[in-house]
Simulated assay, not measured.
Amino acid sequence: MEILKGAGVWTHPGEAGNDWIEQLRTSDLSVGTYCIPVGGRDAQSPHTEDEIYVVTAGRAKIETPGRTDEVSPGTVIFVPAGEEHRFTEVTEDLVLLVVFGPAYGSRSPES
């Protein structure tokens, strides 16, 4: 067992404007926290792994090619590998607990 300290907790974004911190990595999954400040821009590209987002704080919208939904604390989102998605209209500092299966980047051609 392991307690993941800091998972899902706001951390001040770096100069890039957003912040991703990985708190756990195994071959089968990874867990981290992604933070986007009010008015921030989410420029992520589709991932090669499935992912689950759990909104722990903040408000925004998530957009995919066919859908836009509002998200707030308690919202749980599944994004399959390869699906384009991004968070927009961040009206309150957004904190996302993120679970990748398998681990983030493990299916990338560079891996």
Rank of each mutant, 00 (worst) to 15 (best):
residue 27 S to L: 13
residue 27 S to V: 13
residue 28 D to N: 14
residue 28 D to H: 15
residue 28 D to G: 12
residue 28 D to A: 13
residue 29 L to P: 04
residue 30 S to W: 02
residue 30 S to P: 06
residue 31 V to S: 03
residue 32 G to H: 10
residue 33 T to C: 07
residue 34 Y to M: 06
residue 34 Y to P: 05
residue 34 Y to D: 01
residue 35 C to M: 10
residue 36 I to L: 12
residue 39 G to N: 08
residue 39 G to C: 06
residue 39 G to Y: 10
residue 40 G to W: 00
residue 41 R to N: 14
residue 41 R to D: 12
residue 42 D to C: 09
residue 42 D to Y: 05
residue 43 A to G: 04
residue 44 Q to N: 12
residue 44 Q to P: 00
residue 45 S to Y: 14
residue 45 S to A: 15
residue 45 S to V: 14
residue 45 S to L: 15
residue 47 H to D: 06
residue 47 H to A: 06
residue 48 T to P: 02
residue 48 T to E: 12
residue 49 E to T: 06
residue 50 D to E: 05
residue 50 D to L: 07
residue 51 E to L: 10
residue 52 I to D: 00
residue 52 I to A: 05
residue 53 Y to I: 07
residue 53 Y to F: 13
residue 53 Y to C: 01
residue 57 A to W: 05
residue 57 A to K: 15
residue 58 G to N: 05
residue 59 R to K: 14
residue 60 A to I: 04
residue 60 A to V: 08
residue 60 A to N: 00
residue 60 A to C: 03
residue 62 I to F: 10
residue 63 E to T: 15
residue 65 P to L: 04
residue 65 P to T: 03
residue 66 G to M: 09
residue 67 R to S: 13
residue 68 T to R: 13
residue 69 D to I: 15
residue 70 E to H: 12
residue 70 E to C: 07
residue 70 E to F: 11
residue 71 V to D: 04
residue 72 S to E: 14
residue 72 S to R: 14
residue 72 S to W: 12
residue 73 P to V: 05
residue 73 P to H: 03
residue 73 P to F: 05
residue 73 P to L: 07
residue 74 G to T: 06
residue 74 G to Q: 08
residue 75 T to N: 09
residue 76 V to Q: 07
residue 77 I to N: 06
residue 77 I to F: 02
residue 77 I to Y: 10
residue 78 F to D: 03
residue 78 F to Y: 15
residue 78 F to M: 09
residue 79 V to S: 02
residue 80 P to Y: 13
residue 80 P to I: 13
residue 80 P to T: 10
residue 80 P to W: 13
residue 80 P to K: 13
residue 80 P to M: 11
residue 81 A to C: 10
residue 81 A to K: 13
residue 81 A to I: 09
residue 82 G to T: 07
residue 83 E to G: 00
residue 83 E to H: 08
residue 83 E to K: 10
residue 83 E to L: 14
residue 84 E to C: 02
residue 84 E to D: 12
residue 84 E to S: 13
residue 85 H to W: 11
residue 86 R to N: 04
residue 86 R to T: 00
residue 87 F to E: 01
residue 87 F to T: 04
residue 87 F to K: 01
residue 87 F to I: 01
residue 87 F to H: 03
residue 87 F to P: 05
residue 87 F to L: 02
residue 88 T to P: 08
residue 88 T to I: 15
residue 89 E to S: 10
residue 89 E to I: 00
residue 89 E to N: 14
